[in-house]
């Protein structure tokens, strides 16, 4: 579960960005819509603990992450938040499977090769487990990114523009995948996007202005 209250952020030399309160329960999906430059990424980074809050609170499962600092925030993020970026980056030196496993170990969890392999199978990329990232397609990369975000069974999955670069067919598929996997992991799913195609499928939404 995630909720925010009175979030406000100001970049040095910029104007205040006032963000609406949001709430998303486990197994729920929340769509955060907004056009470019209205603070979508800022919100996402605040929710994900990638950016320290200035004003207001972010609660994830009864933990106020704005009160965590340093390595405690890093650990909390690793264990409880899975993030899928629009542009996904990977550790190039590792294989697909290892990129998933590394997410377990960096979060401080036990590494479980079988669980990682199973997750990849579920995402239909099990056969690519031992390929290197540079050798797989863009669509496959997106699936690896989803697997990586899900492997620790996070309380919250944040997806940043997961579909905006995809055609309708792939857009549908990825969305379905995210929904399924979030459900399977029992996570809350927050999708931040300007892709208006999604609002027809997801009813629970907040619009940034």
């Amino acid at each position: 579960m995630i909720s925010t209250h009175n979030l406000k952020y100001k970049y040095p030399g910029g104007s205040d960005i006032v963000l609406p309160d949001i709430l998303c329960n486990p197994l729920d999906i929340l769509l955060v819509l907004g056009s470019s430059g209205v603070g979508k990424t800022t919100l996402l980074h605040l929710l994900g603990g990638l950016l320290a809050t200035q004003l207001g609170t972010v609660m994830i499962n009864n933990t106020e992450i704005s009160k965590l600092s340093g390595s405690r925030l890093d650990t909390f993020r690793g264990r409880n938040i899975g993030i899928v970026f629009q542009q996904n980056h990977f550790i190039e030196a590792l294989t697909v499977l290892e990129n998933v496993i590394v997410a377990q170990s960096l979060a401080g969890n036990k590494t479980d090769r079988t669980a990682a392999q199973n997750l990849l199978e579920r995402l239909n990329i099990g056969h690519k487990a031992n390929s290197y990232i540079r050798d797989i397609s863009q669509g496959e990369k997106q699936r690896v990114a989803i697997a990586r975000a899900l492997i620790n069974q996070p309380k919250l999955i944040l997806a940043d523009e997961p579909t905006s670069a995809l055609d309708d067919q792939n857009c549908k598929e990825v969305l379905l995948l995210l929904q399924e996997q979030a459900k399977a992991a029992g996570s809350a799913l927050v999708i931040v996007t300007h892709d208006t195609r999604l609002k027809d499928v997801i009813s629970n939404r907040v619009i940034l202005q």
Binding site: L50, D74, T75, R79, F90, A103, L106
Partner: peptide, 14 residues
């Protein structure tokens, strides 16, 4: 990659 490692839970020290 390094930013990503941080996102995945690694501290600055790590």
């Amino acid at each position: 990659e390094l930013a990503l490692i941080r996102v995945m839970g690694a501290s600055r020290t790590k």
